[in-house]
Simulated assay, not measured.
Amino acid sequence: MQPGFLSIRSLTKRYDTMVAVDTLTLEIPKGELVAFLGPSGCGKSTSLRMIAGLCPVTSGTISIDGKDVTRLAPYRRDIGLVFQSYALFPHMTVLKNVMFGLEMRKIPVAEAERRAREAIALVRLEGREDRKPAQLSGGQQQRVALARALVIQPSILLFDEPLSNLDAKLRDEMRAEIRRIQKRLGITSIFVTHDQVEALSMCDKVAVLNGGRLEQIGTPGDLYERPATAFVASFVGRTNRLSGVAEGDRISVGGAALRAPGSRRGNVDLMVRPHRMIMTPTGDKGPDFDGEPLNSIGGEIRDVYYAGDILNYEIQAGDQIISVERATTGGETPMASGSPVTLTWRVADTLVFGAGQ
């Protein structure tokens, strides 16, 4: 394995008999933005705190640009950290908050102020240098926290769920802002989140953690289109999970004979993304997907939900419930509950995993 700019080898954290992080190994190239994605308790924040030096390592190593920093104090690791809670000093102005790290490093006042004003301009807060945190919005406070982390010119930038306290519109704005700044400066960064939209839309790579272990790392497209495990398939994006019995490339699901890539035998879970399914009234001609091999299953509309950009249909297919998403175009009339329908999708869009994985 080629060493990365940030190299994490067999990183483990135990609390008595509980293993919070289990032999995490990652090689992160210089300049990449990588998400640690997973549910609460999966080990992503603990991993970040070990990288930052805020949590002692049970075993394993952490290296930055070839230097082992596993046992170094946080201030000696050349790392910037952006917290979920902003952690600004309420009695200090924006300028003084941003200058703080430089002053602790004994940077001359004039130089510290020059660099702080540059960082403030980078996060687009010019003209607010003399305000206190209480005079700023949540999004502006997060920008101050980002400027304070950037001003020390760290080798690594760590984000610990920094957007979770913001409303939806501000989160969208800050995602774009963080990505813009990270790419402009080329800082190797880790972004901890439980929000798949943040991970997929912002990051070069996504590392999915579950139960303290790494399930898969790859580009957003890799994880979404080619999940390595059932957990990744269900956590990264929305999916239907259907129980079936496989015999080679054929799978029996509730009496329907379906196909899937590859060959397997026994009880399986079949997964299909809701937006990859095309729903047509039973008896109508379905899609042909340019002649690609197709799967289809019949059912009945049980319910429909309007969610703005999509209509979400719940389909009763035998003893299983299938979710289907259709984009709204404005003015359409949803199909009625109780309507018989046929669901069609490409065989290539069918994911299969061992039952209960």
Rank of each mutant, 00 (worst) to 15 (best):
V94L: 02
P108S: 12
R175E: 04
G101A: 09
T58Y: 07
Q84G: 13
G283K: 12
I51M: 10
I178H: 11
G66D: 11
F100P: 01
S45G: 05
G38K: 07
I28F: 10
A207T: 04
G60H: 10
G266A: 14
E126I: 00
N97G: 01
A336G: 07
T70A: 12
G356P: 04
D269T: 04
G211T: 06
S63Y: 01
S252D: 12
Q141C: 12
L88D: 02
P74N: 09
G237L: 13
S243R: 14
G211A: 13
A257N: 05
A336I: 03
G31A: 09
P29T: 05
T342D: 14
L351C: 00
L170V: 14
A257G: 06
D222R: 15
L223A: 06
R265S: 15
R326I: 15
L72I: 02
E173Y: 06
P281F: 05
K67W: 00
T239H: 08
R76M: 03
R326V: 15
F159W: 00
P154A: 09
A20L: 08
S85Q: 12
G212S: 13
T280W: 00
M202D: 05
K132W: 02
I310V: 15
K30D: 08
N267I: 00
D68L: 08
L311R: 13
E32T: 04
Q153R: 15
T342K: 06
G4W: 07
K205H: 14
R148A: 02
D303C: 02
T328R: 15
Y15R: 01
F353V: 12
R115D: 10
L163Q: 07
L343E: 04
Y15T: 05
S47H: 00
C203A: 09
G244M: 08
N165M: 02
S85V: 01
D222Y: 11
V192Q: 11
E27T: 14
P56Q: 13
Q84A: 10
R14E: 14
L157A: 10
P90K: 08
V324F: 02
Y224K: 09
D290W: 08
E113H: 04
R180Q: 06
E173C: 00
R276Q: 11
S155E: 15
E113M: 03
R241G: 00
G218S: 10
R9S: 11
G318V: 07
L122K: 07
A199C: 12
R131Q: 10
L242V: 02
V352C: 14
I187F: 11
V192K: 13
A327R: 14
G139P: 11
S339K: 03
A230I: 08
K96G: 02
V206R: 09
T17A: 12
E126K: 05
L146S: 04
A149D: 11
T280Q: 11
P108R: 11
G60V: 06
S252V: 13
T193N: 03
S137T: 09
H194E: 10
Q135N: 05
P154T: 13
A207K: 07
R180M: 12
P108A: 12
P162C: 13
T70C: 10
Q316Y: 01
T280Y: 02
R213P: 01
M174E: 04
V341K: 07
M99D: 03
S234H: 12
L150D: 03
M1F: 09
D284V: 07
I156F: 11
I181P: 02
I321M: 14
G127N: 04
